[in-house]
């Protein structure tokens, strides 16, 4: 019923390709050929139902390297953005700030953002503290999810959450869709009323 685009933004190697696979196919490929093929723009389709509305989502994943920024900005026309860092990489966390400013510069107004600390399963390699994620969340007013593509932690939750946020942001356009969804029920109620008034 509704179709829109979500974008994954991240540094290289924060496990986003795995995230993409989890989001869409609910699969996890641990042995991912990381470099070849990760340079560029990839997308996958996903369909979920939120609040009675069928939502078709194109999830775009763009190369994170700085040198591609002038090219990737054209792909940023999304309704919602996942900002992803790797909890085992301090650097990827630091870069979130940079990504936020890039997003603010290029993304359309009203774009919804959500912060994701991925690789939560690699607790032993953790470099970014729990509080740091929360802190960014406060600073930028974003929701925060600690996820793991490996253990499927919070994948669906974060995904659904961002979709909800986008739907909320476009509530007005969607009101029509919602009323139609409840149409059948309304029909039955109507008939019942008729009978009550029709009876003596």
């Amino acid at each position: 019923d509704v179709l829109f685009r979500l974008l994954l933004i991240r540094d290289s190697r924060v496990g986003k390709t795995c995230l993409l696979c989890r989001f869409t196919d609910n699969e996890f490929h641990s042995s991912h050929i990381s470099t070849i093929g990760s340079q560029g723009v990839d997308f996958k389709m996903n369909t979920i139902e939120v609040d009675g509305i069928k939502v078709r989502i194109q999830i775009w994943d763009t190369a994170g390297q700085e040198r591609y920024q002038t090219i990737t900005k054209q792909y940023r026309r999304a309704r919602g953005i996942f900002l992803v860092y790797d909890i085992s990489s301090e650097r990827s966390y630091q870069h979130i700030m940079k990504w936020v400013s890039v997003v603010n510069e290029y993304a359309p107004e009203g774009v919804q953002k959500i912060l994701i600390g991925n690789k939560a399963d690699e607790e032993q390699k953790r470099q970014v503290g729990r509080k740091q994620g929360q802190q960014l969340t406060k600073e930028y007013g974003m929701d925060f999810y600690k996820t793991s593509a490996c253990t499927n932690l919070n994948i669906k939750e974060s995904f659904t959450r961002l979709t909800e946020l986008v739907l909320q942001a476009h509530r007005k356009e969607l009101d029509g869709v919602r009323t139609r969804a409840s149409k059948e029920l309304a029909l039955a109620e109507l008939e019942e009323d008729e009978r009550q008034t029709g009876s003596p």
Partner: peptide
């Protein structure tokens, strides 16, 4: 999910 998968496999 399987349709999505099919669609994604067809990209």
């Amino acid at each position: 999910r399987s349709l999505d998968k099919m669609e994604n496999a067809n990209i």
